[in-house]
Simulated assay, not measured.
Amino acid sequence: MVQERQTQGKAVCWTLRLWSVAVVSMLLLSTCFIVSGIVTYKFMMDKPSRRLSELHTYHSSLTCFSEGTMMSEKMWASCPNHWKSFGSSCYLICTKENFWIISEQNCVQMGAHLVVINTEAEQNFIIQQLNESRTYFLGLSDPQGNGKWQWIDNTPFSQNIRFWHPQEPNLPEEQCASIVYWNPLKWGWNDVFCDNKHYSICQMKKIYL
């Protein structure tokens, strides 16, 4: 009888220990999950705050607007004042003529880069902002003059996304791309000398809040 009680007592102790281990493990897992969620939330909230802070070093004021069609989808997006909004980006038409490299540096000083065109819709939006008598630098260049065009933000240059005028690009010495209106062809891309002075288009990502 005594031996049987001792055996039962040991079994109860082991059961209690197993339950204790299980409870402690669950508490640890729950704590890790909560901490992970807090860290992720803080990171997601801090990221736009950091970008807003960075933009305020370049721009004195921003314009914010709601996006989305339903209440559950609505969010706030921001662009610097006087920049145009389209898709997930903000655009600025620079009407001071400069070399390609200086135009890019000017964009960088505003937290942006020369425009990278990825879709026909984006191209159509941009040309609505342009003056038909002017030429505008794009963020597209062929530094070696060997036909290997590359975007300034390292976006792969897709042969499916191109809007060159017929027979362009045509000179290896013309290593920078522009967008220009030719009658009757209308708007299209053209290769030009990088040390020519033209207008330009800057682009930056929107800030989402």
Rank of each mutant, 00 (worst) to 15 (best):
residue 111 G to D: 01
residue 16 L to S: 13
residue 149 W to K: 04
residue 17 R to Q: 07
residue 69 T to I: 05
residue 175 Q to T: 14
residue 104 E to K: 11
residue 91 Y to L: 08
residue 180 V to R: 11
residue 189 W to Q: 05
residue 66 S to Y: 03
residue 15 T to P: 00
residue 43 F to G: 00
residue 19 W to V: 10
residue 104 E to P: 02
residue 201 I to P: 03
residue 167 Q to C: 01
residue 161 I to E: 14
residue 13 C to G: 05
residue 49 S to T: 08
residue 185 L to T: 08
residue 188 G to H: 04
residue 16 L to C: 13
residue 173 E to C: 08
residue 86 F to I: 00
residue 176 C to T: 14
residue 61 S to G: 04
residue 54 E to P: 01
residue 102 I to E: 15
residue 151 W to H: 01
residue 159 Q to R: 12
residue 179 I to P: 03
residue 86 F to E: 04
residue 80 P to F: 06
residue 117 I to Q: 00
residue 26 M to W: 07
residue 7 T to L: 10
residue 55 L to Y: 11
residue 88 S to K: 14
residue 53 S to A: 10
residue 124 N to R: 12
residue 101 I to R: 14
residue 100 W to R: 07
residue 190 N to M: 10
residue 123 Q to I: 05
residue 127 I to D: 01
residue 165 H to A: 05
residue 86 F to C: 01
residue 2 V to P: 00
residue 174 E to N: 13
residue 171 L to E: 12
residue 76 W to K: 09
residue 1 M to C: 04
residue 64 C to P: 02
residue 82 H to M: 10
residue 8 Q to S: 08
residue 95 T to R: 13
residue 177 A to R: 03
residue 6 Q to M: 08
residue 186 K to V: 07
residue 71 M to S: 08
residue 7 T to I: 10
residue 177 A to P: 05
residue 110 M to Y: 12
residue 198 H to V: 06
residue 178 S to T: 15
residue 182 W to S: 10
residue 201 I to W: 01
residue 115 V to T: 15
residue 43 F to V: 09
residue 117 I to H: 01
residue 136 Y to K: 03
residue 121 A to K: 15
